[in-house]
Computed example of a mutant assay.
Amino acid sequence: MLVLDTVNQYYGQSHTLRDLSLDIPTGECTVIMGRNGVGKTTLLQSIMGINPLASGRIMLDGQPIQGHSVEARPTLGLGYVPQGRQIFPLLSVQENLDIGLPMRPRGQRQIPSYIFELFPVLKDMLARRGGDLSGGQQQQLAIARALVIDPKVLLLDEPTEGIQPNVVAEIAGIIQKLNKDMGMTVVLVEQKLPFARKLADRFCILDRGQTVAQGPMEALTGDQVKAYLTV
């Protein structure tokens, strides 16, 4: 489905991704883990084209996408929920959702009905400004906005950050429905190990911009957690 092949990326003189290679299997949930500053967000931004690659390839369904612009990548089937949500606070919930409609094929530019089945609270708040929503509601809006395009791959960057526990449980359930029931491929950047274990089929641990461990989620060892994840 999604393949990164010896990807390198820099911020100025800082080498942030180093010959990073990763296979994201179709229909599975892959969690990207590691301490702060190891390149997790940079990895997702590189997939979305926000950060241009210095070298390497990113393939989606066997086709290279690194030559496509940021604006074009959603049309290829990539949905992105950035860290910190980044909704438009002065726009209504409806207007935030409508932003993705031009990425859909002509004649299909309406919000998919399943979005309001997943997020019924948003249906009751369509006229409310995004900035007036709670943090958990804003996170749900950010995920719903990414789903408007009906992505093949959903990229989620720290979706539980700053969210109250009951909403974290709701978001976990939604991600499970998207992945297990609807077959959507999910790439999840997550610091909370219990949340990752609950959702992920596979894991990839980054350290200093490199892949240092990956495999089935049940194969993650205590030594790997201690070496690369504990603070």
Results as ranks from 00 to 15, higher is better:
residue 47 I to Q: 06
residue 95 E to C: 08
residue 37 G to Y: 10
residue 32 I to P: 00
residue 58 I to S: 01
residue 89 P to S: 11
residue 37 G to M: 08
residue 83 Q to L: 04
residue 96 N to E: 14
residue 90 L to H: 13
residue 31 V to N: 01
residue 73 R to M: 12
residue 85 R to E: 08
residue 89 P to E: 08
residue 80 Y to V: 00
residue 31 V to S: 12
residue 84 G to I: 03
residue 89 P to H: 09
residue 30 T to F: 12
residue 50 I to S: 00
residue 63 Q to A: 15
residue 48 M to I: 03
residue 55 S to D: 13
residue 64 P to M: 14
residue 39 G to Y: 05
residue 65 I to N: 07
residue 94 Q to H: 12
residue 48 M to A: 02
residue 87 I to G: 02
residue 47 I to N: 07
residue 62 G to A: 14
residue 80 Y to F: 15
residue 42 T to G: 03
residue 65 I to F: 05
residue 58 I to Y: 03
residue 53 L to Y: 07
residue 88 F to P: 00
residue 87 I to M: 01
residue 60 L to Y: 14
residue 72 A to S: 15
residue 97 L to I: 04
residue 56 G to H: 12
residue 63 Q to T: 15
residue 71 E to R: 08
residue 75 T to Y: 06
residue 38 V to G: 02
residue 30 T to S: 14
residue 33 M to D: 06
residue 60 L to R: 07
residue 51 N to C: 07
residue 31 V to I: 08
residue 59 M to S: 09
residue 70 V to G: 07
residue 70 V to P: 04
residue 90 L to M: 10
residue 85 R to Y: 03
residue 67 G to L: 13
residue 94 Q to I: 00
residue 73 R to A: 12
residue 57 R to L: 05
residue 75 T to C: 12
residue 50 I to W: 03
residue 96 N to Q: 14
residue 86 Q to Y: 01
residue 62 G to Q: 13
residue 94 Q to N: 11
residue 56 G to L: 10
residue 51 N to M: 03
residue 88 F to C: 03
residue 76 L to K: 15
residue 73 R to D: 11
residue 36 N to Y: 06
residue 94 Q to C: 10
residue 81 V to K: 00
residue 64 P to Y: 13
residue 41 T to L: 00
residue 30 T to G: 05
residue 87 I to V: 12
residue 36 N to S: 04
residue 78 L to W: 02
residue 90 L to S: 14
residue 88 F to I: 02
residue 50 I to K: 01
residue 75 T to V: 09
residue 40 K to Y: 06
residue 84 G to L: 00
residue 40 K to M: 11
residue 30 T to D: 07
residue 79 G to F: 10
residue 41 T to G: 05
residue 46 S to Q: 04
residue 34 G to Q: 04
residue 82 P to A: 09
residue 37 G to I: 08
residue 84 G to T: 00
residue 52 P to G: 07
residue 86 Q to I: 01
residue 35 R to I: 03
residue 50 I to L: 12
residue 46 S to A: 15
residue 62 G to W: 11
residue 43 L to Q: 08
residue 68 H to R: 13
residue 82 P to G: 07
residue 74 P to Q: 05
residue 71 E to T: 02
residue 89 P to V: 09
residue 74 P to D: 05
residue 57 R to N: 15
residue 69 S to C: 10
residue 65 I to D: 08
residue 38 V to N: 04
residue 65 I to E: 07
residue 35 R to M: 05
residue 78 L to F: 04
residue 63 Q to D: 12
residue 33 M to G: 06
residue 70 V to F: 13
residue 97 L to C: 03
residue 76 L to W: 09
residue 54 A to M: 09
residue 33 M to Q: 09
residue 37 G to W: 09
residue 56 G to R: 11
residue 52 P to C: 10
residue 64 P to K: 10
residue 87 I to E: 02
residue 56 G to T: 10
residue 93 V to L: 05
residue 91 L to I: 11
residue 82 P to R: 07
residue 52 P to T: 09
residue 91 L to Q: 09
residue 53 L to P: 01
residue 96 N to P: 13
residue 61 D to E: 15
residue 81 V to Q: 06
residue 84 G to R: 01
residue 74 P to H: 02
residue 95 E to Y: 00
residue 96 N to S: 14
residue 29 C to P: 04
residue 83 Q to I: 02
residue 53 L to I: 08
residue 65 I to K: 02
residue 29 C to L: 15
residue 83 Q to F: 05
residue 96 N to W: 09
residue 78 L to Q: 02
residue 35 R to Q: 11
residue 76 L to D: 13
residue 60 L to H: 14
residue 67 G to N: 15
residue 40 K to S: 12
residue 42 T to D: 07
residue 96 N to V: 13
residue 58 I to P: 00
residue 86 Q to A: 11
residue 63 Q to N: 13
